[in-house]
């Protein structure tokens, strides 16, 4: 079990992004949440097995059709209390 923070930058203004991220997290069975700072920045915290977190990053780098992710980066987090399920904050 790992916890990582994935940071996205780009044209993220579309309403489809949160729905899309939650669906993908559900598909990969990852817990965590999405914080969207503004139309250009978003932060996703996910917890789960390493390969599934990597799969989340890979999917996010492409994103939904009407979003263009320009930059993606990620780093490990040392958090213990990740609630079950995925939420939009």
């Amino acid at each position: 079990m790992e916890v990582r923070e994935i940071r996205l930058e780009g044209r993220l203004g579309s309403d489809s992004l949160p729905v899309w991220v939650r669906h993908r997290a559900g598909l990969l069975n990852l817990s965590g949440w999405l914080d969207r700072a503004d139309a250009e920045h978003a932060r996703i915290v996910v917890a789960g097995p390493g390969p599934m977190i990597e799969a989340m990053e890979v999917s996010c780098s492409l994103g939904p059709a009407d979003v263009m992710v320009e930059q993606i980066s990620s780093s490990p987090l040392w958090l213990d209390d990740i609630p079950q399920g995925f939420s939009i904050r």
Binding site: G26, L27, L28, N29, G48, P49, P51, M52
Partner: peptide, 14 residues
């Protein structure tokens, strides 16, 4: 089983 990640137990959501 995902052979490219042979050690992973895939979640039952896939």
């Amino acid at each position: 089983l995902i052979p490219s990640h042979p050690d992973l137990t895939p979640p039952d959501t896939i």
